[in-house]
Computed example of a mutant assay.
Amino acid sequence: MSNQPHEGYDPYGQPQQQPQAWPGQQQPYDDPYAAQQYPQHQQYQQHPQQPQHPQHTQYTQQWQGQTWETQTHQPVTAAAEETAYLPPQGYAAPAPEAAAPEAPAPDSGYGPATVAGNTRVTDAQRARAEGRSPIIEPGMQPAALTALLGLLLAGAAAIGTYALLVPLVALQAVTAAGWFRLNGMWPARQGIALGFAGALAADAALLVSGRSPSAILGTLGVWVLLSLVLQLRSHADPDERMYGLMATVAAAALAIVAGGYLAADADAVTVGAVAVAVAVLARALVPPPRTVASVVVALLAAAGAGSAVGTLTDLGTHGAFLGAGAGACALIGHRVASYDYPSRFVHFTAGVALPLSAAAPAVYVLGRALA
């Protein structure tokens, strides 16, 4: 500890700056002859070399016992002893097997063994693993039901407004139920009932207002606000409430917008509904791998059907444009119902209703423009 005594050195030779001794300890500089012959710095350097002097020995031992290094080494040593017995943090823990699992057998239908057990492989996951598209279209049976419902709409529109309400209400109910099932929310009776109630309210507003399209917009705004209030009162998690809000608003919007058949001209409804029926049937007849070809064939068939039916109405050859527009919207709704390996129930609800519901705005707008 040869460097520690320099704390008491005074370069100006003032004796009052010398360190004071502790109680019961004599002054370290008690040699008057050494103080007269040597400077203070030399006197201070001689103390460690005279251990025989009892006074210097006592001072050196006590001074070393109170040094800064002694005080700081003790807590460091204690901390090291305390932490020496801590278990290793994650280095010796057994890690789960990270090896890539082997692909399941083609006919097993189950995934690889996991810690939690075997997991069922869905059709969408199997299709992605095999490099195939996970999209399955509704097929011929839902397309036939869509064509049947479209023909009912076309015939009812030719009869009268109240006759049109019967197939229209059925279309709106299937639309609300199919959209919730398409989003994986079932049973969702509250949301389905809310969307269907909005469709009925829009129909009633259309009849009262003389089939004014503003009734659809007003009902849609009220139902969006009502859906928001109901979801805010829910006790579910925030993510689930947001997901439920989006599904409820979309289902109500599609069901209400389907009321556009009631607001459109009767001839436009007849031409558009027939065009949708033909487009969906043509889309289902062409094999799924030929997507582009089937879309082109469906659009041409819808335009031809619209032109043919338009000659029987006041639209004439302009029915081809209306048929093509309604057929394009119907194909969009058909594609939405085919999303990511939906179940059979989705095919017979959303797959049937969405093509007709999506075509309702085109029927109203093009019918008013071409009339």
Rank of each mutant, 00 (worst) to 15 (best):
A268F: 07
P213G: 01
G333W: 06
S212V: 05
G221H: 02
G304A: 15
A251L: 13
L220I: 09
V278H: 03
I216L: 15
V295I: 12
A330Q: 02
A277K: 06
A266V: 12
W223M: 15
V271S: 07
H318C: 00
C329H: 02
A337L: 05
D203R: 03
G218C: 12
A308V: 08
A252R: 01
A298M: 09
L232V: 09
L254W: 09
P238H: 12
S209C: 11
R233Q: 15
S212A: 15
A282G: 08
V295Q: 03
D267R: 02
G272N: 04
L299K: 08
A301V: 06
A253W: 14
I256H: 05
V295C: 00
S227K: 01
G259E: 11
S234H: 05
V286G: 00
A202F: 04
M242A: 15
L331P: 07
R233E: 15
A252I: 11
V271E: 01
L232K: 09
G221D: 04
L207E: 04
A202W: 01
P288C: 00
L315W: 01
A328P: 01
V296R: 00
T291I: 08
V278F: 12
V257R: 00
D237I: 05
A298R: 10
P288A: 12
W223Q: 11
A282V: 11
A337V: 09
A266C: 02
A204G: 12
G325D: 04
L220M: 14
P287W: 04
L230R: 13
L262H: 13
A266L: 13
A279D: 05
T311D: 03
L217V: 15
Y261A: 11
H334E: 12
L217E: 09
H318V: 02
G316W: 05
A277Y: 04
R283D: 07
D265S: 14
D203M: 13
A305I: 10
A266G: 13
A302R: 00
V229H: 05
M246V: 15
V292L: 15
L230N: 09
G272R: 00
L226H: 10
V224G: 12
L322I: 09
P289S: 10
R283L: 02
P238M: 06
S212T: 06
L254H: 08
G244V: 08
G259Q: 14
R211N: 12
V271Q: 05
G221L: 15
T270L: 15
A258W: 02
